[in-house]
Design a protein around this nucleic acid. Structure first.
Length: 634
RNA sequence: GCUGAUGUAGCUCAGUUGGCAGAGCAGCUCACUCGUAAUGAGCAGGUCGUCGGUUCAAAUCCGACCAUCAGCUCCA
């Protein structure tokens, strides 16, 4: 008998030679059926592996993220096996599990079509049905290279050559198919429930655009049909929330062929935007910021001085004025530097918080444009804070708190990343280390978990990024806090210290929305177009039952307008049902239905968006309720 | 920028082997004066993304370009 330590610390005795699968089955019939992989001392192992004594084991099922990853990873091997059967000349690259599914990259002359995906799926079903055992095998480095060279898999050979030569290489076999793989995997191909291939797209080998572009097939898999159906339905629902679709339907914003990447804001979208900016202004005034506006076009010499000419040129637009070179600003910082330098500053002014809603233009490559999320001109809700070195941590904490307050107002959860010195950077390593330490310290004080992104900082300093997700689960950077020791140097910023000497201030750049355009795109998807009343372009829509109610409607509308409520009147000769439908489709928070009863009793019938008829209220009651809801920003 | 797909009325989409450009919704006009998610009838609306080629004839076949979509790469 050998003792196994379970998750809860208890000891389970199993017989010599038993596998992890036997242990799982021994614990409970259900676990034996549902266990996908064993987690032994924190490391995932195949269920077929022999159970080892005195080790702490737990079992992952599809309910666990790790179980799902293994499940999808084996699914990707199913895909690869099917492709090799149908297209033997296809070369295998890599095929990992990803969030919600898996992919596999292939190199082949044939370009996969959606019809091919159906055929590949059929082949995968055969492989599943055959229920091949998935068998792990370990080879030496040389044996592995020889094996994949013989199989004609150059990408696999390249991968093995990147591995340490003195270590064993693991491979997995299922039927006639063999793949280089770290594992672990499900015990057999029949363990995969239902799967679907979703799309095919190009992807660079090893993620570098210098390398060959391969073909990537995306798919997903679930144990039960109802789960995959639910997943596919969720994706459909997400598409309905796409801000590009809603922007068009609700007449908020759009882009035209005449200006790829340069979005238009229509009157209704502009209303939301102005509300966002109004909220932003009042919060910044409260937090001690002053607002400036710097010009969109500035001279070449400025951009050379700021480093943008050397480090950011490929993203900038240029023009000539009277034979001199100018550039359209891709960032607001140099403008803020010029503002700072327009007079002498004292340490007593610090921290000096200078905010700017600055319109920047950046040349983005055509393939990356995406509605309002990725555009060629956008408005950063920027601010530059000038301060003493000892004020850094407090100021960063202040900005983190402000970002949190903003995102909470909209009901967002977010992810934080810290990015360090990139290859193409200005400034010494010492300066960078100091800056990174300051950012880390602020995050530690706030106890915010974050992901470290080595080498992902801006060319002038490290940054803390705040990421929000769109309706399809894609993540977009919005807020960012960037420490900058470089620009104060380049622009020779100074202040008069308490001992009367000139010193160098420290500066941070920060944005909260990030880009107002992107933020509005994300907001649109977040609310599915049903904006809370403080943001809704039309807050109340007044509907008449018949033409004789027009006068009463106009009178009420006038009173609501005087209260600062955004209203529309629909007094067309249409049925009430038709007008209500239209109001609901336009996602107006409140509809007021006015007919004989309301005129008679001098009331309004209130219909709340997506809830329905709320009954009759006096106009004053309704106004009070609406104003309360607007001020609550809910 | 790269790989693949797509581009027909304001929107969503039909359009067969090349042979007169179509529907629904929206818009406009008329009738109905109506009570909580679509009243009926009529009218109008199109360089078929752009440019070029093949053909007696091109929305349809070929080429180039532009834009969009998915993904990759790159970034707020």
């Amino acid at each position: 008998m050998i003792p196994i330590i379970l998750k809860d610390g208890s000891v389970y005795e199993t017989t010599e030679g038993a596998s992890w699968r036997d242990v799982a089955s021994g614990l409970s019939r259900r676990l034996g059926k549902e266990a996908l992989v064993a987690k032994v001392d924190g490391k995932l192992e195949d269920l077929d592996k022999k159970a080892s004594p005195e080790e702490k084991v737990e079992f992952c099922t599809f309910a666990d993220e790790e179980g799902q990853a293994v499940y999808r990873h084996t699914s990707s091997h199913l895909l690869a096996q099917a492709v090799k059967r149908l297209y033997p000349e296809a070369k295998l690259a890599i095929g990992p599990a990803i969030a919600d599914g898996f992919y596999y990259d292939f190199d082949t002359e044939h370009s996969f079509t959606t019809e091919d995906l159906a055929l590949i799926e059929e082949e995968m079903k055969k492989i599943k049905k055959a229920d091949y055992p998935v068998v792990r095998q370990e080879l030496t480095h040389e044996e592995a290279i020889a094996l994949f060279e013989e199989k004609g898999e150059p990408y696999k050979v390249e991968l093995i050559k990147d591995l340490p030569a003195d270590e064993q290489v693991s491979i997995y076999k299922q039927g006639e198919f063999t793949d280089l793989c770290l594992g672990p995997h499900l015990p057999s191909t029949g363990k995969i429930g239902v799967f679907k291939l979703l799309s095919v797209a190009g992807a660079y080998w090893k993620g570098s655009e210098k390398n060959k572009m391969l073909q990537r097939i995306y798919g997903t898999s679930f144990p039960k049909k109802k789960d995959i159906d639910a997943y596919l339905q969720r994706m459909e629902e997400a598409k309905r929330r796409d801000h590009r679709k809603l922007g068009q339907e609700l007449e908020l914003f759009g882009v035209s062929d005449e200006g790829p990447g340069f979005p238009f804001f229509y009157p209704k979208g502009m209303t939301i935007r102005l509300e966002l900016e109004g909220f932003w202004r009042s919060e910044h005034q409260k937090a001690g910021y002053q607002e400036i506006k710097s010009p969109v076009i500035l001279s070449r010499s400025l951009w050379e001085r700021s480093g943008h000419w050397d480090h950011y040129k490929e993203n900038m637009y240029f023009l000539k004025i009277d034979d001199d070179d100018y550039a359209i600003k891709p960032m607001n910082c140099p403008g803020a530097m010029i503002y700072y330098n327009n007079r002498v500053h004292s340490y007593r002014e610090f921290p000096m918080r200078i905010a700017e809603l600055g319109l920047v233009h950046r040349h983005e490559r055509s393939g990356v444009l995406h509605g309002l999320m990725r555009v060629r001109c956008f408005t950063q809700d920027d601010a530059h804070i000038f301060m003493l070195p000892e004020q850094i941590t407090d100021e960063i904490i202040g900005v983190i708190d402000m970002i949190d307050h903003f995102y909470r107002t909209f009901g967002f959860t977010y992810r934080v990343e810290l990015s360090t010195k990139p290859e193409k950077a200005m400034g010494s390593d010492e300066i960078w280390d100091t800056a990174i330490n300051a950012l880390e310290k602020a995050l530690e004080v706030k106890e915010i978990p974050y992901k470290l992104n080595e080498g992902d900082g801006a060319f002038y300093g490290p940054k803390i990024d705040f990421h929000l997700q769109d309706s399809l689960g894609r993540s977009w950077q919005c807020g960012t806090i960037q420490l900058d020791f470089v620009n104060p140097e380049s622009f020779d910023l100074t202040y008069i210290s308490d001992d009367g000497s000139k010193k160098r201030p420290v500066m941070i750049h920060r944005v909260i929305f990030g880009s107002i355009e992107r933020f509005l795109g994300i907001l649109t998807e977040h609310y599915g177009g049903a904006f809370p009343i403080w943001l809704a372009p039309v807050q109340v829509k007044v509907l008449t039952v018949a033409s004789r109610h027009t006068e009463y409607a106009a009178d009420l509308a006038h009173k609501l307008e005087k209260e600062g409520i955004r209203i529309e009147v629909d007094d067309r000769n249409e049925r009430v049902g038709y007008k209500i439908r239209e109001g609901e489709v336009q996602k107006v928070p409140f509809l007021l239905v006015l007919g004989d009863q309301e005129v008679e009793s001098q009331t309004v019938s209130v219909r709340k968006r997506s809830v329905g008829d709320q009954g009759a209220f006096t106009l004053q009651e309704f106004i009070d309720n609406v104003k309360e809801e607007i001020s609550q920003k809910t």
